[in-house]
Write a protein that binds this DNA or RNA. Structure first.
Lengths: 337, 337
DNA sequence: CTGTTAGCGCCTTCAG
DNA sequence: CTGAAGGCGCTAACAG
């Protein structure tokens, strides 16, 4: 059987109240000698308080829920690591929930987490995470922060990547390297991040005096296979292009694959760029030039924000937007104009 | 405020015991009408039981702890997904803990998890996870299973990959493809999986009448950089070889990188093989021929075993060893003998 | 079929 | 400086 506060109290010949006081460092209310005696016994018996019992009265479990689409998506492990490290630093554990971006799974997990009395929730929802889920969260009065999703909900905090600025920088780089005809493989239309990046692409073009040709953009779904297909489509177009910007690395890898198959040399004939800088971007051939999202940092910031909310130090409605960083590797070749 | 069992009882004009009975589907002990009336009120008020309170009396939290080295290691996400899916299916949530294989971090997490009353633990420890940690686990009387670690502890269950058989198959394949001089990039000497795979390599050689030459094996640490370095070392050797078997995919990618740099063609001049089949294995150039560990399944099996233990349906000491599967892609070329 | 009573382990007034 | 008593929300004998 586990040692409880009662055992310690009996052993020390005091009441559990007194023991409770020393456990919780209530500076006043306990004599120095008593305190030390109790501390010694606690140490000897290896007593540590039971979080469940404590949680019941304090309504605090030191656990937060983290809801994401899928940990197998290479974009998430680093984020989760950032969250976990930060959580641990502040005395929290994380419960991981994979939803595959399914609305009903999200709903179920949110309920469960609330019932399990988590102290807070980090939520990377599906694109159309229905109002219902969000309202459930708001109603629960449990602090939460959106991660990697730009969501306008009154009083809700979020942290995400600046996709517009990021893709703008990427495409501008391509232009500076002498490219004029730049195709684009986008993410799904419903995805807010995909929309942002597409916007960055257009903007960069226009700002540099290059007309935007909608036919040069094809839509994928952020998966490798769609990049592969997308590249195939582009190749059939009656347009010339010297570079293809992809909305994420996975699709860029797919594009690379198609190019390898067709015997088209990268970057000699066509330059390719990615976005995210998942670790595999440095392992392809050629290595991918891409925009590095501050993934770990994204997780850290989200958790920090959540801690503030849980501590009541922030009242919500904070917005943190992280700028990605250009990583130049080998998939882009300079063109003479 | 959250609705509690008390609210429901009052509303229904019954005692909380009765409500508790219907919540827990105690078939007997409640009249049909009463039951329905209560059910209706529960539904209306949206009541769901508080797991913390329940946990306190039942000593059951429906949460399990999962301790791994690092979720950023591409080997783990799929495993974790298998664990989580299976856990969810059985009504459990998982608390994720990253230890970086640090002995003290593991220790801390184990303590914490015990204090938080998790119902079970899945443990992928460091190679030399000291006896102390394991004893702490055993003493706690919390069910646990080792994952991806072959550990001989009386009464402990584990599930892992058959590294000996796996690498044996890989190297045999190479031999069948006509290779006779096969170098090897191994994992760290302390790692049990690395030892197993190395053994499989030797055994395959010997069984096919090829002498084992220790100078043809270099030791890495499972990371890409060490594969890159290892390949460099091998190239300096005064020996000929037509193939290099790597103890995992990451190192194989590193080896590939060195070969690209030196302008040595793969698989034309040198064939390369990996192990694990992390998702990036299908994205390199050329695509890696490798042994696919049943990662998702590893997670599923571990969790299933844990559930059995928690349900008291198994008394421990189960051992599950999963066979990996050969995945032939493009990094090996047939040789004429 | 239903209610009463007693905790689970801990924290927190309120007395002494 | 310390202890007694009550309660967090729920389950589990034990009585009616």
């Amino acid at each position: 059987m586990r040692v409880t506060i009662k055992d310690i109290a009996k052993e020390a010949g005091v009441s559990i109240t007194t023991v409770s006081r020393v456990i919780n460092n209530k500076t006043e209310g306990v004599g120095e000698e008593t305190r030390e005696r109790i501390l010694k016994i606690i140490d000897e018996k290896g007593y540590t308080p039971n979080y469940i019992a404590r949680g019941l009265v304090l309504k605090k479990t030191q656990v937060v829920g983290v809801i994401i689409p899928d940990i197998m998506n290479p974009f998430f492990p680093e984020i989760i690591r950032g969250v976990e490290d930060t959580a641990a630093k502040h005395g929290y554990n994380i419960i991981l929930c994979n939803t595959d971006s399914k609305w009903d799974k999200e709903k179920e997990y949110i309920k469960l987490l609330i019932d399990k009395y988590v102290d807070g929730i980090i939520y990377t929802g599906s694109m159309q995470s229905d109002r219902e889920n969000i309202e459930e969260l708001m109603d629960s009065s449990i602090p939460f922060v959106f991660l990697d999703r730009f969501v306008h909900v009154d009083g809700a905090s979020y942290v995400c990547d600046d996709g517009v600025a990021g893709m703008y920088e990427m495409v501008s780089y391509l232009i500076e390297e002498g490219h004029r005809n730049i195709a684009y493989i986008s993410g799904a239309r419903e995805s807010s991040t995909a929309r942002d990046r597409l916007e960055g692409y257009k903007k960069a073009l226009i700002d540099h005096g290059i007309p935007f040709n909608p036919e040069l953009v094809v839509h994928g779904d952020y998966k490798m296979s769609s990049g592969k297909l997308g590249m195939g489509e582009l190749l059939k177009l009656p347009y010339q292009f010297t570079a293809v910007a992809c909305a994420n690395d996975l699709m860029a890898v797919g594009a690379l694959d198609t190019l390898h198959e067709k015997g088209i040399e990268v970057p000699k004939e066509i330059s390719i760029t990615g976005y995210d800088d998942i670790y595999l971007a440095g392992m392809t051939y050629p290595k991918l030039t891409t925009m590095a999202q501050a993934k770990y940092s994204l997780g850290v910031q989200a958790m920090k924000l959540l801690v503030e909310l849980m501590d009541g130090k922030s009242t919500g409605a904070e917005e943190i937007v992280l700028r990605p960083r250009l990583v130049v590797r080998d998939s882009v070749e300079r063109r003479r104009i």
